[in-house]
Amino acid sequence: MSATGTVARHRGAFRRLLAVEARLAWREPVALVWGVGLPVVLVLIFGNISAFREVLPGSGGLTVLDAYLPVLVMVVLAMLGLVGLPVPLATYRELGVLRRMSTTPVHPSWVLGAQLVVNLAMAAVAVTLVLGMGMALGAQLPSQALGFALALVLATATLFTLGLCVAAMARTARAAAAVGNALFFPLAFFGGLWLPQPVMPEVLQRISGYTPTGAAVQAMTSTVQGSFPSLASLLVMGGYAVVFAVVAVRTFRWE
């Protein structure tokens, strides 16, 4: 058996695994509904509320809708990272799927890889839809494209690695769903889902800047205003991502 044959076989196996995980994500559409559907529906609703077209005080001229687009992007990443990614992984571990896979020539880490790809793909679709529909509804898009891309990558890294920590620590699928949701709500709050950052009380605004989601929304919002994200917001996200990744790698168990 040549090395290239093995590589081709592995590539084929990973493609199959990816197809299966994508089909399962479609059949058990929790992530699809909350991570893609919800933010897209929220853009539609917000875009049709006339009060959301008014300028948000303290936002440097952004309308409420403009300010909400980065928040909804954050909701996409948080939902997929904290629920979409860890719940299937914890389910598979609980059911013994990963254990069974470890008896085959394919390592169970491939399932993790496939889940990452599937959730990243859903995130890409959802972010595109949120921004595209926001634009169609008259919202201002990030004009600092490079800054936005960087903020998006770091925000994804932060929330997905946090999700891997959830998958690592939760012993059951139920626990993973509970922990993921329990993290989602405060994080979405600090990210400004209920109260956009510009209208948060000063103390809250400051605290928010040190949370993964608050920093993510801050960074993305500056790119809507046309400037590069603040170093502080990028460092906060990068720092969390490194810490979460280390914790996840140290604590993750395949069985």
């Binding site: 076989r9 199959r16 059949r27 059911l95 013994g96 069974r100 008896t103």
Partner: peptide
């Protein structure tokens, strides 16, 4: 070269029999 059937090894509830067999067949030479 070794097939293992373990205790309590389930599959994802919505995975179909044929999908599981084809998926695992793809893991082997």
């Amino acid at each position: 070269q070794v097939g293992v059937q373990q205790q309590q090894g389930a599959l994802p509830p919505k995975l179909r029999v044929g999908e599981a067999l084809k998926l695992y067949a793809g893991f082997y030479r």
